[in-house]
């Protein structure tokens, strides 16, 4: 009986943990999952050790859902380990798929980040200015901690990923649907994104009409009309350039899409595509006027790469210092 059950693993790398919570959000569906699957590894929910995983035969796990990006050597080590032990590896959530919000760290160097985190914040109390090192000596012994990498990486930079289920977090229904598909053996081509091919605009019910913006605004600057397209109202909305699946969750509550479900099928650089689409809504034949309007978008890189900088063509900021 039990050997017919699906062997499941779940892991949380560099991320916020929201994806794990999303798994729990499938509610009573979890009982169905328990019916068909045994969970062999899920550190956030149960006490497992890496050595338990290391002891598994290669390909022991039928499916492993891995969320979070690769930020340090531990993330990578476990990702490689789980890859070896899993028949199917699913990158769960935007961080694992595209780098996610934490990928915004690629605007800074590792040193800048560590300096800020350990020395510069208001609440930091670190008079000796110690920054943790991968290897340090304590009482004559060598202490090892994972090494923080220069940049944030997506999972498939290191291991082969079978399926992608992006979202920050992915909607519980989508996770449930993915599990159903796995159980039923109805998975698409390896390498696929387990989402509809369309974009958020397709799911968004707002009326798109003007496609011309005279002034870009921040969400706090207006209470948007609930019927009209947010972009038409001057709010930078990533909906046109973002994969569907969320059911237009943000625009339904009057907030512009920020692009968390990642690029449309086949798109190489979501941020560049979104930027191109948004910029041309301000087109006029008056160059100075156009410049004025477009400059109202203060942080284009941060806006358009909010969830996908490590997945972009440049992956981050050019660092002269890194020479």
């Amino acid at each position: 009986m039990s050997d017919k059950k699906l062997k499941l693993g779940l892991y949380w790398a560099a991320g916020c943990g929201g994806c794990d919570v999303a798994v729990l959000d499938i509610d009573e569906k979890i009982l169905d999952v328990a019916e068909v699957a045994d969970i062999h590894f899920w550190p956030i929910a149960m006490d497992f050790k890496y050595k338990d995983v290391a002891a598994m035969d290669d390909g022991f796990l039928d499916v492993c859902f891995l969320n979070g990006a690769i930020r340090n050597s531990e993330n990578k080590e476990v990702a490689e380990l789980l890859r070896a032990k899993s028949k199917v590896l699913v990158a769960l959530g935007t961080c694992a798929c595209y780098g996610g919000v934490i990928g915004l760290a690629n605007f800074c160097t590792r040193e800048e980040i560590l300096e800020t985190a350990f020395k510069k914040t208001v609440s930091t109390d670190n008079p000796e200015g110690i920054i943790p090192q991968p290897v340090s000596e304590v009482d004559g012994c060598e202490l090892h901690i994972p090494e923080v990498y220069e940049a944030v990486y997506k999972l498939d930079d290191f291991v082969n990923v079978d399926y992608y289920l992006p979202g920050c977090p992915p909607r519980a229904e989508l996770i449930a649907k993915a599990i159903d598909a796995i159980v039923a053996g109805q998975l698409p081509e390896p390498g696929s994104v387990l989402l509809p091919a369309k974009t958020v605009c397709d799911e968004c019910k707002r009326e798109k009409k003007d496609r011309h913006v005279d002034e870009f605004k921040r969400p706090w600057e207006l209470i948007p009309d609930e019927e009209k397209c947010l972009l038409d109202q001057g709010l930078v909305c990533m909906g046109p350039a973002t994969r569907a699946g969320c059911g237009a969750a943000c625009t339904n509550v009057n907030m512009p899409c920020r692009g968390c479900y990642g690029p449309a099928e086949g798109v190489i650089d979501q941020g560049a595509k979104a930027m191109s689409a948004v910029a041309v809504t301000a087109v006029s034949t008056n160059l100075a006027e156009m410049e004025k309007v477009i400059s109202q978008v203060k942080d284009p890189a941060g806006t358009f790469y909010m969830y996908g900088l490590p997945n972009s063509l440049l992956r981050g900021r050019q660092m002269k210092e890194a020479k």
Binding site: A197, K198, C201, K208, G239, P240, G266, T281
Partner: peptide, 9 residues
């Protein structure tokens, strides 16, 4: 048509 999200840009 399979890819177009109908954003009308």
């Amino acid at each position: 048509e399979d890819k177009c999200g109908g954003c009308m840009i």
